[in-house]
Design a binder for these strands. Structure first.
Lengths: 99, 99
DNA sequence: AAGATATATCGACTTTTCTCGATATGCCAA
DNA sequence: TTGGCATATCGAGAAAAGTCGATATATCTT
């Protein structure tokens, strides 16, 4: 876990917002109920909710994934993203003990 | 506690290093033994240890203070900085519960 | 195979951050 | 009150991040 990179990833309002939405996928993305929440939420849903362009949101999600805060699962033409709770636990610990 | 600003402050190797040094002031800054550690470590000591310029380090410390991660105490011509442990506890909590 | 859809990547431009040297401010000592 | 330190602030140039539109890639449907 590269501390600086993780903190950079968290240094953006929209990315924090996305992470927050992903805490309660059902509540935050009811539109996806039809397709289920098994692997998380797909890029398009997240993009719509942010109001930013597709490329920006795709980039944001890949940033969050690169540092390990979310996990991605490709299913057909969709990529589903979900939080990686272990990473958050680790980060919280890190702040308590190492930083 | 402005989350984005706190994470920005933590998104820098040198600033993380400084925070880490301040965890154990006596061990990290033995040169300051003569003057005591009551209010923390003064800018000059920190600057020397980073190898960066005085202005950069002063700026870094004021950034850390602005977001609440350190506390500053002016004594004569010196400004002493020390960690604000409450802020770290709060941040750790924040990550566990809100982010 | 072709078209449609979802996502990723690229190139460009703007804004922010990093870092410095120079200068200002505040405080102390002679 | 003048000079000398310690720290803060300013202005500038370089590097990184934010964000977009355009395009590429992958997959699905027909």
């Amino acid at each position: 876990m590269d501390q600086v990179e993780v903190f950079k990833a968290l240094s953006n309002k929209t990315r924090l917002q996305i992470l927050n939405w992903l805490k309660q996928p059902e509540a935050s993305f009811p539109e996806q109920a039809v397709y289920g929440y098994a692997h998380g939420i797909c890029v398009g849903q997240i993009q719509q909710k942010t109001g930013l362009t597709q490329s920006t949101v795709s980039e944001y999600l890949s940033t969050l994934q690169r540092v390990g805060l979310v996990k991605a699962t490709r299913v057909g033409q969709w990529t589903y993203y979900q939080r990686n709770e272990e990473a958050f636990a680790e980060l919280s610990q890190l702040i308590q003990s190492e930083i």
